[in-house]
Design a binder for these strands. Structure first.
Lengths: 358, 358
DNA sequence: TTCCTGATCTAAATCGTTTCAGTTGTGCTG
DNA sequence: CAGCACAACTGAAACGATTTAGATCAGGAA
């Protein structure tokens, strides 16, 4: 290897044009060029035109966003964290709709969403250039949540347990669940299956044991389960756990459940996606819905109207709006309050009284 | 709309701890503290421990990601641009699934997705700190696309016309459409309705005139329309335009279409979501599917299995993977090639021969 | 002793902006 | 003609890190 290069001071960066180059080409100061872009009132219209013109001809693409953010101390980016492979988030229409409503709420304020992937590794959370965080469905004791709070940035927790260092936005999960269970009871169902979402980050499937039920990590699951129990008093309940919020998964679990407990005549599903799986299972078994089997979902997705699914509606759009508002308040240095939004049972065509005999 | 400038004034940068503070507290240089985080082999284990310990006790939260990015010239962020209100993207399960598959493809490479909202304003595109762009479903002549290409960053175009300055990843839109149309023809349908996605960024609804059909801005719509026409030769075709990819919208347009053309016995929908609307319309009219009306969708969403919908499958996961791979190649300075992925008709239970008489 | 090597650690130069605090030069008032 | 407001522009200090090119020192070989 040759020991030393004669031209050691070669600029390694590809010939990137900066404010300085433009300023030099014009014989003005960099401050003036910067002002041409950011504060047109600080220089004469004529000079501004010349600056912009020169910049264009030099191939200058405008002030570097990164340098600007560093200097200004603001990025205009909100980090979104989801405590599961992020692909699941997109596979879940309810999550996608929520993200859509957040987007809607913040896009007029020059804010954008950065999706932080890979939950088992907290590095992205530690090294993301963001002004604030949204944490969606993280378990209360997760490393992820801890890493987020460690950043010390404004944080909004969605559908999670409250935390002193963050704002919490959620829905009345238990209330909606209670209504749903009550509805089945009112119709006369005595044996009711419950298709749960994940109870915690560790993926399990099958019947939920009482001790497992006692240590549920996700607030949503926990609350809905409590709601079901309080609304279905007097009935026999058969909760089963799923490991992914997907129709296929719902179908499999429901088939298992009905095989183990043929006396079940009603199904409470913690999501419309799982309810879709229940619908498939019923079709597979040749059961008529609702004559042979009643099914209730949760979320009220757009497709559920088409399925004529009885379900629990939740104000997804409102939720996004509240998250957005809270974020804006926190970023402006104001306080924001925890919010719990209402839910409501929507009775459609997948529920009826139980069959007299099977 | 006035340009949003929410945080013109930065918040008080009250006592933020930096590398320097930590270095001073220890009496070492900032380089050493930096090395403690980034290159542990550059200092003794003992000193490194002390640095980390001091940092912790001082409340230092680790190297600022922004400053690091500026210095390193890399952000680890990919900008995603969608040529419609971003909320629509989330409302469309196919788009959400695609985003999910991209996420999956890049998350092992320390890359994250930044969703750039508000398409009518190109500011976010101009001022986003990203290493590369993904453009999804933008019209060929849109300001948005131009703004993206102006940034001069690696760019992948998805479901769009090819462009010399970018890599294009797409599917065989026309092929799938042709198969679908052919299928209806083979079954004997003579009068076929076509429910189109948006033809261009300007929202229209209702019947598509021949001249409008000639100037379709979105490649997906254009290709599928061509495919339908080439597969349905000999039949009378009635294309109608929608302004949003949503079930409700599909229902409305189909009701209009069937009112205007009662002789229609088959429907080609450019998305499963629109096909869902068709299903609703049929129910509203008391028509039996497929006895009275055949319906074919496009995308093959998970819910379409439940609906038993005949539809055109597309390799969403593959698409995301290819986008991810191309991005990685471009970021590494390598070249990447345009890719067109196959599509395939999936026949389920919503298609049959036309009724003899109505 | 002298020189070389390797392990540690440091000084200083960036990275590309924004913005505070001036410095000019001009025209107007009193 | 002094005094002053004002418009137009500039210098230089941040912003918070990474990284290159040494400096220093101890130990071992020659």
């Amino acid at each position: 290897m040759p020991p030393a290069k004669p031209f050691a001071k070669a600029p390694p960066r590809g010939g990137r044009i900066t404010l300085r180059e433009v300023a030099q080409a014009l014989g003005v100061s960099v401050a003036t060029v910067s002002n041409a872009y950011n504060r047109p009132d600080q220089l004469s219209e004529e000079l501004r035109e010349r600056v912009l013109e020169t910049a264009r001809s030099l191939g200058y693409r405008g002030p570097d966003p990164l340098a600007r953010s560093l200097r200004r101390g603001r990025t205009g980016v909100i980090g979104v964290v989801y405590d599961a492979p992020l692909e699941y988030a997109f596979a879940d229409p309810a999550a996608a709709m929520f993200l859509g409503s957040v987007t809607h709420a913040i896009q007029d304020h020059a804010l954008n969403l950065l999706l932080l992937a890979s939950p088992e590794d907290v590095t992205p959370v530690r090294s993301a250039s963001v002004d604030a965080f949204i944490v969606y469905c993280a378990a209360d004791d997760s490393d992820l949540l801890r890493a987020v709070l460690d950043r010390g940035l404004p944080t909004v927790l969605v559908d999670q347990y409250a935390h002193p260092q963050a704002v919490q936005i959620g829905i009345d999960d238990a209330g909606g669940a209670r209504e749903a269970a009550q509805h089945l009871r009112d119709l006369g169902h005595e044996h009711i299956g419950i298709v749960c979402l994940e109870l915690g980050p560790e993926r399990h499937t099958g019947p939920v044991s009482p001790e497992r039920e006692r240590s549920v990590g996700y607030r949503t699951t926990s609350e809905r389960l409590h709601g079901y129990r309080s609304g279905a008093q007097g009935a026999a309940l058969y909760p089963v756990e799923t490991e992914q919020n997907a129709p296929q998964e719902g179908e499999t679990r429901v088939l298992e459940l009905l095989a183990a407990h043929p006396e079940v005549t009603g199904l409470l599903c913690m999501s419309d996606v799982l309810a879709q799986g229940a619908l498939r299972a019923a079709r597979t078994l040749g059961l008529d819905v609702p004559a042979d089997l009643s099914i209730i979902g949760y979320d009220d997705l757009p497709s559920s109207t088409t399925f004529n699914l009885t379900t629990v509606w939740q104000p997804t759009a409102d939720k996004g709006r509240h998250v957005g508002d809270s974020l804006l308040a926190l970023l402006a240095g104001r306080a924001a309050e925890n919010v719990t939004l209402p839910t409501r049972l929507v009775v459609r065509a997948t529920t009826a009284g139980p069959p007299r005999l099977r």
